[in-house]
């Protein structure tokens, strides 16, 4: 086993009555790209929030760089988060700041750089996502795909040790998708960042991921290198990779038997 940056140990988590994770364990190796895949609604975003300690598990532990992140004091947790970057599924840009200010914000908050150094780095980050020309725009003036790329630039602004990308490819045209794939790969290789990539794009994910986790139904159904996953003879995995509607993984959100009686419109 390689050196693990994140270890999820026997984590259970539920939202109200609904159990989302039951006794899940997985590892995210240091300095590699880990792709987390799974059907919509299985809890991939939830997993990222558990890692960032925005949600606390019912039982089990999440170790980030050897520390149990949920047992940290508030100030230590905030310190730990400075080493993490997160690209939210919705982008989550600050709507009262321009694109450039959004990216400058974490640097202003946590570094002692002067204004000029910050603005240089902002332009550099924007250039890397191909949006240098949009620096002065407000978030409301961006398209969905552009907003996500700005959010990505913001997530990597502090050169974190760990970057979590929640669906970076959604809403991107083939060209920017290709650029983003390259960017993620390059960030990972040059800066020795640990990356967690949540995505539905099987092809893109498998092409850049060193390590792959497939979640379904509150469990990890497969974990291993991209090749191992592709070669897997597990029926669930094959169904997911090939996008077959019928198979062991249900397309439908689980129903209780009486649901047809309850739903009346």
């Amino acid at each position: 086993m390689t050196d693990a940056y994140i270890e999820v140990q026997n984590v259970s988590f539920s939202r109200g009555e609904r159990l989302i994770y039951e006794n899940v364990s997985l590892t995210i190796p240091r300095g590699k790209i880990t792709a987390v895949m799974g059907p919509s609604g299985t809890g991939k975003t939830t997993l990222l929030r558990l890692i960032a300690a925005q949600l606390a598990p019912d039982s089990g532990a999440v170790l980030v760089d050897g520390q149990n992140i949920h047992s940290l004091s508030r100030s230590n947790l905030y310190k730990a988060r400075k080493k993490m970057g997160m690209l939210f599924q919705s982008g989550a840009l600050f709507s009262d700041m321009s694109v450039a200010e959004n990216i400058a914000f974490p640097m202003e908050e946590h570094t002692k750089l002067d204004a000029e150094a910050i603005s240089n780095r902002v332009l550099e980050k924007l250039y890397s996502v191909g949006l240098r020309g949009a620096a002065e725009l407000m978030p409301s003036e961006l398209s969905g795909g552009m907003a996500r790329r700005v959010a990505l630039a913001r997530a990597i602004a502090l050169d974190p040790e760990l970057v979590m990308y929640d669906e970076p490819f959604t809403g991107q045209d083939p060209i920017s998708k290709g650029v983003l794939v390259k960017l993620i790969r390059q960030l990972n290789d040059s800066a020795k960042i640990t990356s967690v990539l949540v995505s539905h794009d099987v092809e893109e994910s498998l092409s850049i991921a060193d390590h792959v986790c497939i979640l379904a139904g509150g469990r990890v159904i497969a974990e291993g290198s991209a090749e191992e996953i592709k070669a897997s003879d597990n029926a669930e995995v094959q169904q997911f990779l090939n996008g077959e509607p019928d198979g062991p993984v249900p397309f439908h959100y689980p129903e209780s038997s009486s649901v047809a009686d309850k739903v009346s419109l």
Binding site: A52, Q54, P106, E109, H110
Partner: peptide, 18 residues
Amino acid sequence: GLMKATEQLSSFEMMGVD
């Protein structure tokens, strides 16, 4: 409320800003 709905508050938290 809208900042919460658009995950801006979570975003601050993730950046280590209260």
